[in-house]
Nucleic acid binder design. Structure first.
Length: 733
RNA sequence: GCGCGAUUAGCUCAGUUGGUAGAGCAACCCAUUUACACUGGGAAGGUCGCAAGUUCGAGUCUUGCAUCGCGCACCA
């Protein structure tokens, strides 16, 4: 077969004589791009491919966690960004895409702890802080290297010269600067309150790191003592040794007369209690007995009631979820054991009135899966309700809500606007301290009663730095500007590229990341972090399940690439997947786009084999009327997709280009060309070849953002005057 | 309890401002040809979840309902 072709078309590029081979092409092309320097907009200007007065387009990569390798969700996210980035670069903009990784404090630390325990049977304390952190850094470095190579495999045209890490020197400087400013403005404070304690991870977590899981639980209804007038219901009898009040609804006629009275209980499972009856509208008259035992130390709601009513608080449970008061029957017991001890005591004393099974949502820690234990603790918080003098006395909440409400930040799809606003309206102060080693250490030092917040340790002896580190999202919140040189306000990158044009995260990190970026940028820069946020959905497996380690359904993008090529994978991920929609990954779809890549390849083969010695002339005019119509059809298509690209509808554009290339160009236009090309009318033949070449050139160009590798490879073969890389060739207008 | 999304061909999904329903895969028939079998041609397959409304006209707009999924709240 090879021989037949060679004999017939001796002058065609030999690459075209065999089917398109992505594996032998992609790495070579990526290297070519990297060496050109064109991923860096400064070099594009320097080398004259971008006008020095061009508009800016900037986007930050949502930094992947250094907890492992990238999955198809990342591949999806990277592809969409690269499509946009390549499009804008070809439109002639100064286009900057910034890469980076996230240290993902808790996630990475617990991953390394797991490995340490599994492989060496050690705990982090066995190594000590310094040695353990070395291990984490090593792990993070390996993970980082894999991630970088994966991003390159995806064809990302991202500026590696500006790569950042949320925990590197520059970002640490930005974090300390931000912390200090917030501390001085009174936005960051240290407070003692009931927080979400993760007994497994041995750290506090924020409200957003909680996952609610439905469980069956027993609802016990009982009285503290025979003389106590009101029965209460609880699922956690073991905490009742810490009760200091019973709350009832002020409108509840049954309990009205008791409000304000205090009852002494000499023995409640070995502990004496002093219970005051208080009124609070948070109490639901219809739940249980309509009366609620208030345990200020171990419930957020109870804690708030206790503050309002000036009630004492008794801590019952420690950091290891063990009981720390009472007699031998309770002391040192795990909460679950103690629960049964108290329940049995109630039965024995004939105080138990009922035990009913109910459905309950239990709070668990996102990372460790442990059941959250609300505990009173001294932690660092960001006050979201304090008016800020330097920002027109607006609160952080207001600063977050405003730009979205006013449309200054465009949210795509717009239904996420509601979710965003709703989240912020319900926002409580953000707990930012974590009792873990890995991460940005809190820049606060103590000496006795003295406290100092600054960029460096204060002068003098005896100062000890806070041992906690910061919530990883504190540094992620700075990402759009910490990557551009902030806090140096004179940084050219910061001036030119901020606010960034768009950010494209998954909707699941709306509260974690997107809202925090708005918070940080609005407060620290007095400006939005991005003009548009485009939320994408989740890539699921073919059955609609989330990819996860426990389901063992992971697909390595590299395996897909090795079999079908990056271009095919990119098309399969992008085409037909609208903003905010989840998508089921379908290998058949990838296969179909591999066929498409080969189709383009063969269109080129046919065209070039008929264009021997002819160079494409964009100014050629000797077309027949029908060819003129075909050119208009082609131009119309390009205007249409250009409009759609500007509206971020690349999921439609990919499909249209596919349909035109295959069903129009290959199936109709090339087929009808065959009779012309085998005829004797030389003028007609030339016009036809020019038309086909023109179409091929245009299609190759506009397909480039979607299928960068095969189009770049083809570009090097096409007979055009323009011989610079396709990635910096102008998009047809 | 409040809110959001989905429901279109056997499967996975597109469908812009309302104007004769589309793609990929699968299944069926034909074709070995001056690109391509990773192919081409052809045919088949849908009362667009249900019901009502607006309209000359509804997959698209309005209302109600159903099923599935998700978020938030409650979670004593």
């Amino acid at each position: 077969m090879q021989d037949r072709m060679m004999a017939k078309e001796p002058n065609i590029d030999p690459k075209l004589l065999s089917p398109y081979n992505p594996t032998s092409t992609e790495d070579r092309i990526y290297k070519l791009w990297e060496e050109s320097g064109f991923f860096n907009p400064d070099i594009c200007v320097e080398k004259g491919v971008t006008a020095s007065d061009a508009d800016y387009f900037s986007i930050v990569l949502p930094p992947p966690n250094v907890t492992g390798t990238l999955h198809l969700g990342h591949a999806f996210e990277d592809t969409m960004q690269d499509v946009l980035v390549r499009y804008n670069r070809m439109k002639g903009k100064k286009t900057l895409w910034i890469p980076g990784t996230d240290h993902a404090a808790i996630a990475t630390q617990s991953k390394v702890e797991k490995i340490l325990s599994k492989e060496e049977g050690k705990r982090k304390q066995d190594l000590g802080r310094e040695e353990f952190l070395k291990r984490v850094d090593q792990f993070a470095q390996n993970s980082h290297d894999t991630i970088v190579s994966q991003i390159k495999k995806m064809g990302a045209s991202i500026d590696w010269s500006r790569e950042a890490f949320t925990l590197d020197e520059k970002r640490n400087f930005a974090v300390r600067t931000a912390f200090k400013k917030m501390y001085e403005d009174g936005l960051i404070y240290r407070g003692h309150r009931v927080v979400n304690w993760d007994p497994k991870g041995q750290t506090v977590i924020s409200d957003d790191e909680i996952v609610y899981e439905p469980r069956k639980a027993k609802l016990y209804t009982f009285k503290y003592s025979k003389d106590f007038p009101i029965s209460i219901s609880t699922t956690r009898p073991e905490t009742k040794v810490g009760d200091t009040a019973v709350a009832v609804n002020p409108d509840d006629a049954r309990y009205k007369d008791y409000i304000g009275k205090t009852y002494e209980i000499k023995d409640f499972c070995g502990v004496s209690l002093s219970i005051k009856i208080i009124a609070d509208y948070n109490v639901d008259k219809d739940f249980g007995t309509g009366a609620l035992g208030v345990t200020p130390a171990h419930s957020q709601v109870d804690y708030e009631m206790a503050i309002k009513n000036n009630l004492p608080s008794v801590t019952v449970i420690n950091e290891y979820a063990q009981i720390i008061i009472g007699g031998e029957n309770l002391l040192g017991k795990k909460t679950t054991e103690a629960r049964e001890v108290v329940a049995q005591w109630l039965r024995d004393e004939n105080l138990m009135e009922s035990e009913v099974e109910i459905d309950q949502n239990v709070s668990t820690a996102e990372r460790t899966g442990a059941i959250i234990e609300p505990l009173p603790k001294l932690q660092w918080f960001i006050n979201v309700n304090k008016p800020i003098a330097s920002r027109d006395n607006k609160t952080l909440k207001e600063l977050m809500l405003e730009p979205v409400a006013s449309g200054k930040i465009k949210v795509m799809p717009d239904r996420f606007e509601k979710i965003y606003s709703h989240w912020i309206e319900n926002l409580r102060d953000w707990c930012i301290s974590r009792q873990i080693w890995y991460g940005h250490r809190i820049p606060v030092w103590y000496r006795g009663e003295e406290i100092y917040c600054g960029m460096e340790a204060p002068e003098g002896d005896g100062w000890e730095q806070d041992t906690d580190s910061l919530d990883t999202w504190f540094s992620s919140g700075l990402w759009t500007f910490s990557t551009l040189g902030w806090p140096d306000l004179e940084s050219a990158d910061l001036k030119n590229y901020h606010p960034t044009t768009i950010v494209m995260p998954g909707y699941e990190i709306l509260p974690f990341w997107v809202a925090r970026m708005v918070l940080m940028s609005q407060y620290l820069l007095g400006d939005i972090p991005f003009h548009t946020v485009y939320f994408h959905g989740i890539v699921r497996d073919s059955k609609g399940q989330k990819f996860s380690k426990s389901a063992n359904n992971g697909i390595d993008p590299i395996d897909v690439i090795n079999e079908y090529g990056t271009d095919a994978l990119r098309m399969a991920l992008v085409v037909g997947v609208g903003p905010g929609n989840d998508t089921k990954f379908d290998m058949q779809k990838v296969k179909a786009y591999k066929h498409f890549a080969n189709k383009i390849w063969n269109i080129a083969r046919f065209t070039l084999s008929n264009a021997e010695g002819i160079t494409y002339n964009p100014n050629f005019t000797e077309y027949t009327d029908s060819e003129k119509e075909l050119i208009k059809e082609r131009d119309d298509l390009i205007s249409e997709i250009t409009r759609e690209m500007n509206e971020y509808k690349f999921y439609l554009v990919g499909e249209k280009l596919y349909a035109y290339t295959w069903s129009r160009l290959a199936d109709v236009l090339i087929e009808e060309s065959k009779s012309i090309l085998s005829g004797t009318d030389e003028k007609a033949k030339l016009a036809r070849v020019q038309f086909l070449l023109g179409t091929l050139v245009q299609i190759t160009t506009v397909l480039h953002p979607f299928m960068p590798f095969i189009t770049e490879e083809l570009w090097s073969i096409l007979p055009t005057e323009n011989k610079q890389l396709l990635m910096v060739t102008k998009w047809p207008k």
